[in-house]
Design a protein around this nucleic acid. Sequence first.
RNA 1: GGGCGCGUAGCUCAGGGGUCAGAGCGCUUCCUUGACACGGAAGAGGUCCGAGGUUCAAGUCCUCGCGCGCCCACCA
Length: 908
Amino acid sequence: MFEGADGMADGPKTAELPKTYDPAATEERWYRTWDTSGYFRAVPDPSRRPYTIMMPLPNVTGELHMGHALNNGVQDCLIRWSRMRGRNALYQPGMDHAGIAVHVVMERRLAKEGLTRFSLGRERFLEETWKWREEIGQAILGQMRRLLLSCDWERTTFTMDPGYSRAVTECFIRLYHKGLIYKGKRMINWCPKDETSISDLEVEHVQEQSTLYYVRYPGAGGSGGIVIATQRPETILADVAVAVHPDDERYKTLVGSQVIVPIVNRAVPVIADRRVERGFGTGAVKITPGHDLLDYEIGTDHKLSILIAFDPHGRMTMGGPRYEGLDRMEARQAAADDLRSAGLLVREEPYVTNVGRCDRCKTTIEPYISDQWFCRMKELAAPAIRAVRDGRVRFHPERWTKFFLDWMEQIRDWNISRQLWWGHQIPIWYCECGEMIAGVERPAACPKCGGRALTQDQDILDTWFSSALWPMATLGWPDETDDLKYFYPTSALVTARDIIFLWVARMIMFGLELRNEIPFTDVYINPTVLNIEGRRMSKSLGTGMDPLLLIDRYGADSLRFALLNRCTGEQDLRFSEKMVEDTRNFANKIWNAARLARLHLEGHEVPAGQPRDARTLPNRWILDRFARTASDVTAALEAYEFHAACHRLYEFIWSEFCDWYLEMAKVDLEGTGTNPGAAAETRHVLGWVLGQTMALLHPVMPAITEEIWQALPHRGETVMRAPWPEPPDTWRDEAAGTAMAEVMEIAGAVRGIRAELGLGTQPVDASLHVGGPDRERVGALRPYLARLVRLDPDRLPLRGLDEHGPFGISSPYGRGRIEIHVETPELRAKARGRFEKQLASLERDLAGVTRRLEDPAFAQKAPAEVVAADRARAQGLVERRETLRRYLADLAPPSRIAPPGSGGVRPR
RNA sequence: GGGCGCGUAGCUCAGGGGUCAGAGCGCUUCCUUGACACGGAAGAGGUCCGAGGUUCAAGUCCUCGCGCGCCCACCA
């Protein structure tokens, strides 16, 4: 009857288990065991399929936040699940040097001592930053462990490790030689605070209240001139023209004439250009090619000269003593004042505009002309677009595909150089003779003049340039290592949506360009963690929560489940501590179910293998439910529907297993059932199902599941390597489901009546009334039913449908009824109220179905099975209505008080 | 200016044409029985944002509004 003879002979240790689960000690203990046992290691093994996840590398700027907890929780869930499914799972950890982000942190620290990076100098600054990195790096690794991540820590990589740096350099050189990287003077986004250029993606646009100034530029010949509108009067100093639309009748005669730029009194031409919007402002626009992108383009096309009004700190360099040295914002005021007193300020109006800000330090960005390195993107984007279109790279949820493609199709060149120090210096050397030399290593001499006085380009690369290599560089690229050949392309990339362009897109492009292969097959975009008010969790907003604190309080298992339980992918996740507390309660529930199991398994020989041919109803039913659960959970994980997996596990464990199965199983475990051999069978099923359930839950809650799994009959060393439960469809047991539905209905009827009548715990007699054909079946359920409704089995006799007990208040179920044998007029009235309510609700349902069935269009057009189902339903409702009516008639006043013991007073 | 997502019980959210709209929390009543009071049982609670439309059938699909959130964008 049972297979698997190699179970644990004496089951769990006998130590008394506490009533509440202690996550801290358990998590710490198991994590250490897993780590030292090498369970996290992943090495190439051709006999198994790989499954690889590259952790989105956290910045070495601070502590992990809730977003990391969710993101890493998802990944570890996928990794642990895949490992149990027999895949060779690699979870690659590491950290990003995060150039500009770290600069901002370091400068803030230096500022407290009155220093800047410039006063410190490049060498010292880098030394200090390395120290900081060591410190924070250790802290972050410790935090990842607290999350119970099953990373291969021996592979931990930092983006400035020597090997990684070599990959970055190699990539630059290859792209450079292919002409995909070039240097040039272009208009870029300049942050005057960080004193570096940043890419378009690092500028965030914020709506701000501003002023639109209408300024008159007098005609050079003393005529009226022209009025323009500008938000930035300080840039007037660098104006080189005024532009109007060629078809604008208002200004046709002015085109070609000269006007005087106020303040600096310079004569500039009025030009015509189609890019000017006639409807905005006055339809005339000042042209400042040095400080505006559109002006730059117009200026270039019209071969205008370029004037630059401020230096890299954002301080004025034009306008004489009145202006020079002023900050650009101060200069704006000064210019407005000067224009006003000169009588050239025609009008000022409030204006809402979008201002570009540095997403790291929030300083207003200046469009600025500067010598920079760029990466050509159209060529790199084309193959990436194809890969996503073909479905070689798939986004989950699917809608992110369009989001990705829309951006890729209008991609522009990428400014990759930064005027910062912390990062990968650009591998370009300049000779005194003017030659520019690219090389992975420092060249010994200039190939053109032989000179040895070479200086390396001072700029470093955008951090995202190096992160783009993450999936390859961690595996040894540019060398064709065994790791690279085996683990690449990786499986799933799990990340937040805000770095789809910054990171995901660039990994795909670089992967295809450098190795002609996609970096991963699936991209799962996880939700954003919000606080309960729906605001983004952020330290600077004061809305952040510390995951470590929550782990201290409730355990990492609970934190992980709480997050994944709400991880739909479709919707952002409003999070509160209460959710973790609720999950802690769930963990405690599981713990206590396990305590119950141990109590009954202890001292018995219980096989570890899977049970077959269970005979008792609870056992048959729970095996059926488990099989369905396992298949539902697998399907959910395959679809990246973590919330669905969690919901199913929660429902199975709490409702099906604990509330119903365990309560019924107690009957057999305690030997009070009628089924011989039921106790042994139940021990086997109980131990096995609970162990398998722990396996199913393990990817989400690693520690508690290991603790319990170890305490049950099992095979193998760890649940981490237990096979993923995949019960065959043949386990489905429809009959058990039907029988259980009847049990649930009877139990529900009795409990309902009892609660409604306020009987409390007072012992009552009851009887089950069933017709001949159902007698045997229901009779067998009697011990379970008695247990479920907390009645003494001896006081729940089985009787015929036409029999009546004393003082009975009946409740119908299916084709039978149950009577509770107490009676007072008050109780009768209460019972009547209950049944009347049931009847009313039933009538409503019946009316609905009847209306539909009577509609000829429905019968004609709806599928036959839908019609048949409705007919059956209507039939059932009618039968039930009859029963309810009968019992209501029984209860109708005046009540017949029957003497005790005189059965059958009530006619059927 | 374009695009995306969301609006379902007091709260957080499932459900995405076919039974009566679900869960957890919260709330009410009862219960300390030997797994668990971080618990058990029974309940109350919903014009599924609004208006049209498609369909035998609409939280569910379409159109248009309204409200929230996010992303992209060189009208100065």
